[in-house]
Simulated assay, not measured.
Amino acid sequence: MSTADPTPVRGVPSPGTAVDEGEPSPATAGAGGTDPERSGATESARTRSGAWRRAEEALAQGWQRSTPKARWVTEKAAPLSRRAAQVNLVQVAAGVAVTALAALLIAVAAQVEWEVGVLSAPLWLFVGAALLAGAVLGPWRGLLAAVLYLVMGLVGAAWAGDGTAAHTDGPWAGVLLTLPLAVLITGWISARHARLRSPVTSGWYFFGWFFFAALAGLVLIYAGGLWTLFDRTAVGGWAVFATMSARFPFDVAQCILVAVIAVGVHRFVPGLLRR
């Protein structure tokens, strides 16, 4: 090609060709041009990042404001959580089971009674069973067993249509009303002295205290029964003496049996009366 050849070289404008500086070339438009779609996406990303930043700041400020309250709640709830961690669920389940079993035992024993012929005052076996629950299970579980027995009995009487008035308004209703308190006292005395075991302590020591605990509960039941008897019936002193004379040996025998069974149970299961 000679120097005088007017044919322009590809990609190089000829000297006489005007170049439009306002219209970008394809390469320039792809590299640094202002694409509307790309600019909109960039603006949306900036908006989202700003929203996240403001949310993080608000969360941090809220946490800083709530930190003292959270610390106070943690300090108050920490002892409860430590106590909950120390609870043995197996022991709790065993305690519930033996309490329900004791209530069932009292209910079964309530089906056994003997008439003495004086004032129609029967000899009740459930009194000894309730005192045994207190001597074996301690004050609180024994109390729960007695209350559960009374609730089951009253609900059963209402369900059968007999009504609860025959049990709560009768002359011997004081026996039922004072039964939970009597079991509580028997259980407290038993738990107090059952922990005083030592190598030199004889078995008669525990038998004596279990017998005394059952006898204390029996005296309270007698007081409640006589209170409702004198309050709701017109009886003489001689009739009451005859009734109590017929009842007392039987009830003392129940207390002796309660002490013997309690000593045997605590010998084989020594942890029943522990906290």
Rank of each mutant, 00 (worst) to 15 (best):
A70S: 11
G163Q: 04
R53M: 08
A55T: 12
L59P: 00
S14K: 13
P36E: 03
A133M: 07
A107Q: 04
G208A: 15
S2H: 09
L148E: 07
G62A: 14
P36K: 03
K76S: 10
P180H: 09
E115R: 10
P6V: 07
F268Y: 02
V118K: 06
G62R: 13
L272M: 03
W72N: 11
L196G: 06
V87I: 11
L143M: 12
G208W: 01
G156N: 06
A45F: 05
T47F: 02
G225T: 03
L218I: 05
P270S: 09
Q254W: 03
W52M: 10
G134S: 09
R54E: 12
L229D: 05
V108I: 15
A97W: 00
W140P: 00
A166P: 00
W72M: 08
V269N: 01
P8H: 08
A246F: 13
V175N: 12
V219S: 07
A239I: 07
P36S: 04
W188M: 11
S120T: 07
A182K: 11
R141A: 07
P13D: 06
L143K: 02
V183K: 02
A94W: 10
G32S: 14
G187E: 08
G225P: 03
G22I: 03
R192M: 06
T47N: 05
V235Y: 04
P139H: 02
P270R: 09
A160M: 09
A214T: 07
T168G: 04
P24K: 10
A27M: 09
F248R: 05
V155H: 02
T28M: 13
A259H: 04
R247V: 15
V219K: 07
L143P: 01
S2K: 08
G237W: 12
V127K: 01
S44N: 02
A97S: 13
A93V: 10
A107M: 08
L218A: 12
W172M: 12
V98N: 02
L148N: 06
Q254L: 09
S44L: 11
L196P: 01
A259K: 09
C255M: 09
L220D: 06
E23C: 04
P79H: 02
G117Y: 07
G128L: 08
T233W: 01
L101P: 01
D20P: 01
A242E: 14
T28E: 15
P171L: 09
G170W: 05
G128D: 07
V12R: 11
Q86N: 10
